[in-house]
Write a protein that binds this DNA or RNA. Structure first.
Lengths: 153, 153
DNA sequence: TATTGTTATACTCTATAACTATA
DNA sequence: TATAGTTATAGAGTATAACAATA
């Protein structure tokens, strides 16, 4: 059944999606949806970490001590949307909030030692997943694709 | 302020996002978010049509008479998620539900004449938007990018 | 006055489960 | 029994507005 569906989608792609098949945005979206599904089936299934949480973890790990407001800025979401995420990562024992010595309103976010350990593991899983996902591309094609994508933002 | 932010993100990109900058999924997501924002600022602002609704419209236009279940299949969402969308497009006068002559449970979805007219206009707006969004790429680079993206799904 | 983190609230998108009317 | 469309409901993910504590 999955093969049949895939086959029919392939065969009717031109007629099913009309002029959209000429649009970059259309293919960008489809590829991105496929990437999320792939991530969910490997990394999220094994480690319980969504793409969003993984991104937050990496930003915290690479910018140790940053504030929640700064994290929100980097992730380009509202400050209020960060609260839940930080709670989740804290409850998982992956990060900690440290009171700032100079500003009592603010927290410094840092990885816990368990978090650092977990991130090394997750990072490997993500790297493998990313390679698997792009298995249809040669290493050169993969690099080329990344460089083209970067020119869009 | 936007320029300052963009500049600081560029300058710190390597340190802010860590190993993610090596991942295809990371760049795919950023490009896709940028594409949605661009679409929202041009097409959605001018025509009140989101990327999702536009996709539905094109699939209905290219597969006139298809059922809601078939539309859900093509869009890869649940049947129940289609109901609201079909209602919205019907209320906007862009599509109509026609009773099936052979199966009284089922509807055939079709564009209204106003819908066809509107779609021609929206289609042009989207085509312009898509070119603007990919203005940083030559025509060849754009085609290359699309062909690379297709190899991911 | 402005900023940090928070809460309350709401909106969009999507899914699951259960219903109805058919088939 | 199975399918088409629908409804009720829930869970992500995100935003806005307003608040307390602090700067």
């Amino acid at each position: 059944m999955p093969m049949t569906q895939a086959k029919s989608l392939d065969a009717e792609a031109e007629t099913s999606f009309g002029p959209m098949t000429e649009e970059l945005g259309f293919h960008l979206r489809r590829a991105q949806v496929a990437a999320f599904k792939h991530f969910a089936q490997s990394v999220t299934a094994a480690e319980g970490i969504t793409p969003g949480l993984y991104g937050m973890l990496q930003v915290i790990a690479s910018n140790s001590g940053l504030s929640q407001s700064r994290l929100a800025e980097v992730m380009e979401v509202d400050r209020s949307s960060i609260v839940k995420v930080v709670n989740q990562l804290t409850e998982k024992g992956l990060i900690k909030r440290e009171a700032s010595a100079t500003d009592r309103r603010s927290y410094h976010l840092r990885m816990t030692s368990e978090g650092k350990l977990a991130l090394r593991r997750i990072e490997d899983a993500v790297a493998r997943q990313d390679r698997e996902f792009s298995a249809g591309l040669s290493e050169d094609a993969r690099r080329l694709l990344i460089s083209l994508l970067k020119r869009l933002y």
